[in-house]
């Protein structure tokens, strides 16, 4: 890993009304590195995602971007530091069309707060067709679009605006084999561009294939970290379930 990680979480804790969702998590993602975060439901993955993307503030601990401590008062702050999140729910406004969702929260404007609809349409159309050449009729409410098209919008807007760290929350959970392969290709391409990727998943097979490092979260704590190159699927599953490695696996 590089000396100063792209983004680093140090001793992050988060309590909700007495529940300790995260109990001091350390996690770093370097440039061009794919780190997978795995764990059961309730392990704290989605809380961690929401802290990284500025939805929640941590109760304790520090977020560092390029070595410098930062605080995110809102999701807009996290985006300003180049942290983009693709949520499992995609976080699209179903009533709006593709360009509106693409530029949601950072609309191109002309004078006096007027929308620059022409430029938004053409830029969004270009970005979407880069990702999916069959994407047609972008100016209709996204509720009328297919799951693949909706995900393309969520992905396209996350990588369009100078992204440094891309957080992907269960990107393949709702996809078929073909689309899952496309997400894999996308991750490889972004990685080669020096973008850091934090991949949240509970599909161990998937992350073994895609990630440089796998961090296992259980009950709000990091219980282990493995490199797919020198470990097995079983070892990761064991960490997820028991929170420790098989005695035989780690002894060797």
């Amino acid at each position: 890993m590089a000396a100063a990680a792209l983004v680093e979480l140090v001793g992050i804790t988060r309590h909700f009304a007495g529940v300790h969702a995260l109990k001091g998590v350390d996690l770093a993602v370097g440039a061009g590195e794919v780190v997978a975060l795995v764990g059961h439901n309730g392990a704290g993955k989605s809380v961690l995602v929401q802290i990284l993307s500025g939805v929640f503030a941590p109760t304790g601990g520090e977020i560092r971007v390029a070595g410098r401590p930062v605080t995110f008062a809102s999701p807009a702050d996290a985006r300003r530091y180049g942290i983009e999140t693709i949520y499992q729910t995609l976080a699209l406004a179903d009533n709006l069309d593709a360009p509106a969702n693409f530029f949601l929260g950072r609309e191109l404007r002309r004078a006096f707060g007027f929308l620059d609809k022409k430029r938004m349409s053409s830029e969004a159309a270009r970005a979407l067709s880069d990702l999916n050449p069959n994407f047609i009729d972008i100016e209709r409410p996204v509720r009328q679009m297919s799951g693949g098209q909706r995900q393309a919008i969520a992905i396209a807007r996350a990588i369009h605006f100078d992204v440094k760290l891309l957080v992907m929350d269960e990107p393949t959970a709702a996809l078929g084999p073909h689309e899952t392969a496309q997400v894999g290709e996308l991750i490889a391409r972004l990685r080669s561009q020096g973008i850091g990727i934090l991949l949240i998943s509970h599909d161990v097979r998937d992350v073994m294939r895609l990630a440089d490092r796998i961090v296992v979260l259980k009950n709000g704590e990091v219980v282990g970290e493995v490199r797919p190159a020198d470990s097995s699927e079983d070892e990761v599953v064991d960490l997820i379930i028991r929170g420790r490695r098989l005695p035989s696996g780690s002894a060797a």
């Binding site: 999701p75 807009a76 179903d94 709006l96 509106a100 949601l104 929260g105 006096f112 609809k117």
Partner: peptide, 25 residues
């Protein structure tokens, strides 16, 4: 219909959580 403010009102009405996550005030 034509301003950022209006667009944000429609977005909030469409999905308030998605709007918040998109950085809308």
């Amino acid at each position: 219909g034509k301003t950022v403010f209006g667009r944000h009102v429609y977005a909030i009405g469409g999905d308030v959580e998605a709007s918040r996550r998109a950085g809308i005030a």
